[in-house]
């Protein structure tokens, strides 16, 4: 009974929410990243890559399905909490907002052309111009 419920819940999630993947500038030093590091990066609390390149974070609008799916399923943080964490840092002088893009095309072109860039995209829209980051 429980198994049936879990499968149903799972397939519901699959059909409703896009499967997301973290992407970065093609010559980024990293291939693999831990979830805790990814949370720190998207929480705007880690500002440079191990090789000292400044990190540039790109996100989509808070209510974009991609943003919701990436926050909840990959970062495992609710989008409204991410927003609150950014607001608290920006309005106390401790951090800056990530840059917001309006479309998948813009996300891809900005990540491909900005050294240190990181963002996310639907797994079936990944191109050769960006690096996919595996979660450790």
């Amino acid at each position: 009974m429980l198994a049936v419920f879990l499968i149903t819940a799972n397939s519901y999630a699959d059909t409703q929410e896009p499967t997301m993947v973290a992407i970065a500038f093609p010559s980024t030093s990293e291939n693999v990243i831990s979830r805790s590091t990814l949370r720190a990066v998207f929480g705007m609390r880690l500002n440079k890559w191990p090789a000292d390149t400044p990190i540039k974070v790109f996100v989509m609008k808070d209510d974009a399905p991609e943003h919701g799916a990436f926050s909840k399923n990959i970062l495992q943080v609710f989008p409204h909490q991410l927003r609150l964490a950014w607001d608290r840092q920006v309005f106390s002088g401790q951090g800056q907002y990530p840059e917001q893009v309006t479309s998948t095309q813009e996300m891809l072109s900005r990540i491909a052309s900005t050294p240190g860039a990181i963002g996310y995209i639907k797994i079936n829209e990944v191109t050769n111009n960006v690096r996919t980051l595996q979660i450790r």
């Binding site: 440079k48 920006v90 309005f91 401790q94 800056q96």
Partner: peptide, 18 residues
């Protein structure tokens, strides 16, 4: 009513005022 500005000249330094 509040306004604030922040500037990040390097990845290790942020200057902010509100």
């Amino acid at each position: 009513i509040g306004v604030n500005a922040s500037l990040r000249p390097t990845s290790d330094l942020q200057l902010s005022a509100g």
